[in-house]
């Protein structure tokens, strides 16, 4: 009863525009509205997704509730696939043209389900963990999808689903790997500091789902000009995944060399028990930051100084030479006998 009022409210909310149009608008073009939730045999049970701990070889039956909020009967395609996290940390599952290799293949469910308008179907599915499953987190997802009719050049497969996260018991390892590189981006103006562009990769090298907040530190020789910046938080990173990020550290003076360090501490994703012995990973990279504009300024200043000194010395020499010359001339003039005197004497 409750669900019917909900469906009515949803239908009213989403189909206001189509209802206003003429009813002749073809039924096949009717938009489809649906939701998919985990549940038990009797319907939704309030979970957002499925999360369970399993031993190798263990199996579990769970349920997905596919609700059709539309006004026509719809056949939904059902699928299960390996789950992963996108570069922005969103969970997604492989599209249907990709073959699953891990937990996606552990899930068995019907190919499709037909749901009457305004109704809901509970679809049981089983997750069977293989005997040789490796310990750790194995993300997967299940979804009910609608495929667009095949007329246009771009088909649209729309999926609504939820995660099925299986943690296989065994030796759990929370570990991250980091690598970093950087380059100094100097300013032409010698009175402006440059910046350091740091690119780094964080890889989940353990076997559990992790989150982390990388810290990036740059420091010149002897720790001069040390700066620490928080990188973007990595909300969820599955085993084997790598996140690439870059960050710019502003206001860094060219100190000939910088040490760039990236540090990341593996943390458990909420609600998971923390894993002991999870050490932070730290990586260093050395980058050059030669103060070219400042060196040029200093060189020009030195050149001008040297030129000025040389000029002064030359000038002094010239004056001295002129004085000497004048004195010589004067002396010569003084010592030379007067022509008139000479004439009278002889």
């Amino acid at each position: 009863m409750r669900s019917i009022t909900l469906v009515a409210a949803l239908a009213a909310a989403t189909f206001l525009a189509p209802l206003g149009a003429a009813p002749a608008v073809a039924a096949e073009e009717e938009p489809v509205t649906w939701s998919v939730r985990p549940g038990d045999a009797s319907g939704e049970d309030g979970r957002s997704w499925v999360e369970w701990d399993a031993d190798p070889g263990e199996a579990r039956t769970d349920h997905m509730v596919v609700t059709n909020h539309g006004s026509t009967e719809v056949e939904f395609q059902l699928s299960a696939a390996d789950g992963y996290f996108t570069d922005t940390g969103r969970f997604n599952m492989l599209p249907s043209d990709h073959e699953s290799e891990d937990a996606g293949t552990w899930i068995e469910l019907p190919d499709s389900v037909v749901v009457p308008p305004g109704g809901a179907e509970v679809v049981p599915f089983t997750v069977t963990v293989p005997d040789d499953a490796t310990p750790g987190d194995h993300p997967a997802g299940v979804a009910a999808s609608v495929l667009s009719d095949g007329e246009g050049s771009i088909g649209v497969e729309s999926r609504v689903g939820f995660r099925v996260m299986t943690r296989v018991e065994g030796e759990l390892v929370a570990a991250l790997d980091a690598s970093a590189s950087g380059s100094y981006d100097g300013e032409l103006n010698p009175f402006l500091p440059g910046g350091i562009d740091v690119a780094y990769d964080i890889e989940n090298s353990g076997n559990t789902l992790l989150r982390t907040q990388p810290t990036i530190t740059v420091a010149g020789p002897f720790g001069i000009g040390s700066q620490t910046i928080q990188g973007a938080e990595i909300a969820e990173i599955a085993p084997g995944e790598t996140r690439r990020a870059s960050i710019r550290i502003p206001d860094a003076w060219p100190l000939f060399t910088y040490t760039v360090s990236v540090e990341a501490e593996p943390r458990a994703v909420s609600e998971q028990p923390p894993i002991g012995g999870a050490a932070a990973v730290r990586t260093d990279a050395q980058i050059a930051a030669v103060p070219w504009p400042q060196l040029v300024v200093v060189l020009i200043a030195i050149a001008l100084l040297v030129w000025g000194l040389a000029h002064r010395r030359r000038e002094r020499e010239r004056v001295a030479r002129l004085i000497a010359q004048a004195r010589e001339e004067a002396l010569a003039e003084a010592s030379a006998p007067h022509p008139a005197v000479a004439a009278t004497r002889s």
Partner: peptide
């Protein structure tokens, strides 16, 4: 909001062309 509510998606059942 009344009732448990739902998180639902609506798509037009049409493909598209370029």
């Amino acid at each position: 909001v009344e009732g448990p509510g739902a998180l639902a998606m609506t798509v037009a059942a049409a493909s598209t062309s370029l």
